[in-house]
Structure formats: structure tokens, C-alpha cells
Computed example of a mutant assay.
Amino acid sequence: MTTFPKSVVIVGGSIAGLLHGVFLKRHGSDVTILEQDHSAIRSSHNAGICYGPSVQEFLRLYDDTNIQSCQAGVITKLAYRQNIWSRDTDIARHLTSWGVLYRILRANFDGLSSEAVSAPPAPRAGDGKANYWSGKKVTSLLKTDYGLLVGFVGDDGREESCTADLVIGADGLHSTVRSLVQAPVVKEYSGYVSWRGSVCEVDVSVETASYFQDRTVLGLLKRTYIVCYIIPPDSASLVPGTRLINWTARHIHTNTVPSGLVCDEVWKEHLAEMLPLVPPHFTELFLKTKNPFVTKVNDALCSQAVFLDGQVLLVGDALATFRPHFALATEHAARHCLGLGRVWRGEMALGLWEKESLNYATKIWLGSRVMGAGLLRGWAEFLLIAWKYVVLFARSKLGT
């Protein structure tokens, strides 16, 4: 019977890495997370995320903080151009912020105290050891007679190493682990970016705050769309008035600009282009955003997830990075985590986990491209990618 690995190094200390870290710790593995970012606690930039049943199941089984992690979205409302009310749908999402989920997972993994979790839970009986090392850039990966030797460099430039039975690459779109094992991957820039920002509820009018209450609002424009929803701040507060109205607007563009570095003139030009096209509640939201930022929308897809005889695995965005239209990145990572649990309990072969993970990733990768093309790129690209998706779906049904 397959068992859980005794020692694990996880490269990448974001959501995917922490999901796997908490999961393995709870099953007795000694886990070390190597995170390249030098900060002891990562900055969230008030980024919003949503999650589905796999994350819900994970938190039910392994979260001991008793912190409410999300703002449940009752409906998704579609607004077309300047029309305030258009159409309601039955689509409901669990909405939260990256910062809140990160802090909950850190509290469970290594006992980090934060504004969200001031009293982290004690370890469970049978938990393995957990280390979260910041400022560690992985540089090498070598298979030896004693396990896998992971080399890394600290902020001080000193070269270090550690050994493990298993290495998990959870280090995102630009994965170092993926490069070290020479994983076959397709990476592409979509040709568009996400303008992003957030505004506290108390900083907008009562009418605007009410408009975004208990719903996700999807504003459809010509080759642009905007998504708005309420999320908790890093303190995890869900008290009305303390929450944030998070917005994302997709737009044809060429580069990434971090929070606080967007030139005022560029932001004003963008506003001049957008404001005449959107409903008044969106207008107020944009005008009261203090630190907007821009992120490039890239994607990546590997055709292999298991390396070095099963001792190296790629998960989350390191295996497949989706364009964000379906908002499935966190759910994707949780699926990998729970699926690997079936492998280590002897319920599934590792090869079958890899096959299922790749099939799911390919469908979402193509599906997100179809949606992005339909909303932003025009009919020609939409029809081409939609045809590829249909062919893929047919082949998966036929088992080819």
C-alpha cells in the first residue's frame, strides 16, 4: 500500500504550495516550503479570488482556525454597457481575498499570527513538522541515493541545500522546478491585461455599495469586460462597511505595472476611455480607486506532471496557468492536492492522477481561451479556439 512521503520540499509558498503543505503536514509528512519572496508574510495587493467545492472540502477537513474565509455570492448579475440592471443568473461563487486565504493556510501550516488569525491553532496529534523559509531561490535539483537534493540561495547570497523524499513544484507561471526538470510546456501571452483595484465600502455612496451587495457584477462592453465583487480585507472582516469592493477590467494591452507604479497620466487616459461606457456605479468605483495596477494575462500548459520516477511533481499554476475568466486557479490546486491524497492512500495510481490532472487542465486551458477570445479578441479567434475545444472534448469522450 502506498504511503505518504516522510519528507517533502515544496517550492513556492503561495496558495498552491500552502494547500499541499497543510495537507501533507496533517498526514504526518515533514514539510519545508521554499519561497522566493523575501517577506515573512506575502503582500496580497487586495487581490480577489473565488473557489469551489475542492477548496471547501479541503478547508472542512484541514482548517482549524474557525475563521470564515469567504463572502458567498448569491447571484451573478450581467450589466450591458451603460445599463445598470440587465440580467440575473444562478451562478454563485465563494468569494474571498488572496490575503485572507493565504493567512488562514499559513496559520494552519506554520502557526503564523496575523491580523486575520491572531491566535493560530495548535498542531494536531500526528502532524508532521512544518517550515516556511522566505527569501530562498531554488537553483538546482539532483537525484541522489539519499533522496532529492534541492539547492537554493538565500537573500544573503549564501548557497544552501536540503534533501527530501518528494519535491513539489508549486511555483507558478514562471516555475523554476518546471525548468529544472525540463518539462514540456506551452506558454503564451494572451495579448490583453487586467486593470485591477479595490475600494472600501465606506468610501463609496450608499447606492453604489448596495448595487454590489451580495452579488458578482459582470459588466459587458465592446471587447472589454469588468468583474466586481465584495471581498474581505486582509483582516478577514466580513462586517459591512469594512469590506472591499474589488474590480477587474480586461483590456487589450502589452505589459504589467505593479500596484503604486501606474503613471497618473496613463490611469487618467484609461479612465477617459472607460467612463463614458460604464454604469454610474462603476464610474464611482474607478474614480475612488487610489492604487490601480496592471497585470499581464498569460497562460501555460504542461503535458507532463510527474518526473524523476514520481519524486518530482508539478501542481497548480506550475502545471497549468489559466487565463482568469473562469477563476479556477485555486480550485485547480486543491484538486491536485486531494487527488494526490488518493494516490498516497493507495486508491489511485500516480499515472492515473497525472492523466486526470492533464485532461482537466487542458479542458480549462482551452475553455478559458475560448471565453477570452469571445469577450476580447473577436469572432475569428473565438471560432478557431472554440473548434479546438470541441475536437479536444470529442477526443476525450472517445478515450483518445
Rank of each mutant, 00 (worst) to 15 (best):
residue 304 Q to A: 08
residue 271 L to S: 10
residue 217 V to S: 01
residue 289 T to P: 01
residue 296 K to Q: 15
residue 243 R to P: 03
residue 305 A to N: 07
residue 224 T to V: 04
residue 312 V to D: 09
residue 230 I to K: 15
residue 218 L to E: 01
residue 309 D to V: 05
residue 252 I to Q: 11
residue 301 L to K: 04
residue 274 M to L: 15
residue 244 L to M: 13
residue 288 K to H: 05
residue 252 I to P: 13
residue 274 M to W: 12
residue 224 T to Y: 00
residue 229 Y to R: 06
residue 256 T to G: 12
residue 300 A to H: 13
residue 279 P to W: 13
residue 306 V to S: 08
residue 304 Q to W: 03
residue 242 T to Q: 15
residue 240 P to G: 06
residue 255 N to R: 14
residue 248 T to R: 07
residue 252 I to V: 08
residue 228 C to K: 03
residue 210 S to E: 07
residue 245 I to G: 04
residue 310 G to M: 02
residue 216 T to S: 03
residue 313 L to V: 10
residue 248 T to E: 10
residue 264 D to Y: 08
residue 284 E to V: 08
residue 224 T to H: 08
residue 231 I to D: 08
residue 286 F to W: 13
residue 297 V to Q: 10
residue 224 T to M: 08
residue 257 V to Q: 02
residue 290 K to S: 11
residue 296 K to S: 14
residue 277 L to H: 15
residue 215 R to A: 07
residue 308 L to T: 08
residue 281 H to E: 09
residue 258 P to I: 07
residue 265 E to N: 14
residue 258 P to E: 11
residue 245 I to C: 06
residue 291 N to T: 04
residue 241 G to P: 11
residue 285 L to M: 07
residue 284 E to G: 03
residue 306 V to L: 06
residue 239 V to L: 11
residue 260 G to L: 00
residue 249 A to P: 01
residue 251 H to L: 03
residue 303 S to T: 15
residue 241 G to F: 10
residue 310 G to I: 04
residue 237 S to T: 10
residue 249 A to Y: 00
residue 312 V to Y: 09
residue 256 T to E: 12
residue 295 T to A: 13
residue 263 C to D: 15
residue 306 V to P: 04
residue 274 M to Q: 07
residue 241 G to M: 11
residue 208 T to Q: 01
residue 232 P to Y: 10
residue 249 A to G: 10
residue 306 V to E: 02
residue 211 Y to I: 02
residue 305 A to T: 05
residue 229 Y to H: 09
residue 301 L to T: 00
residue 216 T to W: 04
residue 293 F to H: 05
residue 239 V to A: 09
residue 266 V to K: 09
residue 246 N to K: 00
residue 216 T to R: 02
residue 251 H to M: 03
residue 287 L to P: 05
residue 312 V to N: 07
residue 302 C to K: 12
residue 207 E to C: 05
residue 232 P to D: 12
residue 264 D to Q: 15
residue 214 D to A: 01
residue 298 N to H: 15
residue 217 V to I: 05
residue 235 S to F: 08
residue 220 L to M: 13
residue 312 V to Q: 04
residue 293 F to T: 03
residue 282 F to T: 00
residue 298 N to T: 14
residue 212 F to V: 07
residue 227 V to C: 00
residue 278 V to Q: 12
residue 243 R to C: 13
residue 220 L to F: 09
residue 238 L to R: 05
residue 307 F to W: 03
residue 270 H to W: 13
residue 284 E to H: 05
residue 286 F to T: 03
residue 268 K to L: 06
residue 300 A to C: 14
residue 293 F to I: 00
residue 260 G to R: 03
residue 222 K to H: 12
residue 280 P to E: 09
residue 256 T to L: 07
residue 308 L to Y: 07
residue 297 V to D: 07
residue 227 V to N: 00
residue 299 D to R: 14
residue 312 V to R: 10
residue 225 Y to I: 00
residue 284 E to D: 04
residue 294 V to D: 02
residue 227 V to W: 00
residue 211 Y to E: 02
residue 256 T to I: 06
residue 309 D to R: 09
residue 209 A to N: 04
